[in-house]
């Protein structure tokens, strides 16, 4: 492929030092993710997948190795520059949804645009568009605590999309919701992926990971398998 991968990870290591004890969370790993991929990163707890997700999300820095996100080297960036990268290039979907409490779905979805300096007049229009896309057009004025887990996660997905990021980074996106609703979330991800969005999903559940096109297994900070040879589990779109 001629175009550059959207994520380039080269010899990346992360070591936590706590008093005398050194914990190697990521041990010299390298991989690329191309534009338009839907990748699941799998592994048991303690495997280093959360650390990897933090680094991919520009929330944490590696000790060594390089991470190039959409052509920008994330190394040596200041805290505020990292905040800017997160705002423009990464759409987060968290396990615990992390919506602002007692705030409407619409206001939650508009928040990243406020930080990103999107013109005030355009914010609401964009937020409405994405809320409709995730099927919450009729619940925009509900506050987050009036919504079910699945609905909250859909608000979070809408929020992750408004800045038109390079990647969508989902951390156990179905961990806190009932399985029926989990299918809905996976269906939205697959649909987004078909539309060209690059999605990286961290999970420890194999049947969730199967919804992705490619699965990277990590254990003890190392990649133990990287395959796109499996059969993607498709959910029929309700539309």
């Amino acid at each position: 492929m001629a175009s550059r991968p959207i994520i380039e990870i080269t010899h990346l290591s992360k070591i936590y030092r706590n008093d005398e004890v050194e914990t190697i969370a990521l041990d010299d790993i390298s991989f690329n993710i191309d534009k338009g991929e839907f990748v699941a990163i799998m592994g048991p707890s303690g495997s280093g997948k959360s650390t990897l997700m933090h680094i991919l999300g520009a929330l944490d820095k590696p000790n060594s190795g390089t991470y190039i996100l959409d052509g920008e080297n994330v190394e040596n960036l200041s805290e505020d520059e990292l905040a800017d990268i997160r705002n423009r290039k990464i759409g987060f979907v968290f396990q615990a949804f992390n919506l602002l409490p007692r705030t409407t779905a619409l206001a939650n979805v508009m928040l990243p645009m406020a930080y990103g300096g999107v013109e005030k007049e355009k914010r609401e229009e964009i937020a409405r568009k994405y809320l409709e896309m995730v099927g919450l057009g009729n619940r925009m004025d509900y506050t987050s605590n009036q919504l079910s887990g699945g609905q909250q996660q859909r608000v979070a997905i809408a929020r992750s999309l408004v800045m038109n990021p390079s990647i969508l980074l989902a951390d156990e996106p179905t961990g806190n919701i009932a399985s029926a609703q989990a299918d809905e979330i996976m269906s939205i991800f697959q649909q987004l992926n078909e539309e060209g969005h690059t999605i990286v999903m961290i999970t420890h559940e194999p049947d969730i990971a199967e919804h992705a096109k490619r699965i990277i297994h990590i254990k003890d900070g190392k990649i133990i398998s990287d395959s796109d040879g499996h059969k993607q589990k498709r959910i029929k779109s309700k539309k």
Binding site: R88, F92, L111
Partner: peptide, 15 residues
């Protein structure tokens, strides 16, 4: 948590 979220979504220190 809210502060963490805001920072993750791109809020700078100054903000």
């Amino acid at each position: 948590r809210e502060i963490g979220l805001r920072k993750a979504l791109g809020a700078k220190k100054r903000t």
